[in-house]
């Protein structure tokens, strides 16, 4: 095996390991995105967007003053 072939093989192996690492990002649970999704669903289920929420209501009143 010539020197350059060996280098190429090593490069491919290193690259493959690297790629696996990159793909792993996708397998980790996206906690922030899940929290956002949960909030959107909770808004809907508890009807918090149509100022049913006392917190939102208070904020709006505060802004009006």
């Amino acid at each position: 095996m010539s020197m350059s072939t060996k280098s190429a093989v090593i490069a491919v192996l290193v690259g493959a390991t690297w790629l696996t690492g990159c793909v792993t990002i996708n397998i980790y649970f996206p906690a922030a995105a899940a929290e956002k999704a949960a909030d959107r669903i909770i808004d809907e289920v508890w009807q918090l967007r149509d100022d049913a929420s006392p917190i939102n209501g208070a904020q709006k009143e505060g802004e009006a003053k």
Partner: peptide
């Protein structure tokens, strides 16, 4: 490999929403 890795990272990043 670098380009592939970057594009994959970009993909993961783009998944800001579930």
């Amino acid at each position: 490999v670098g380009v592939l890795c970057l594009s994959l990272a970009g993909l993961a990043f783009a998944q800001g929403n579930l």
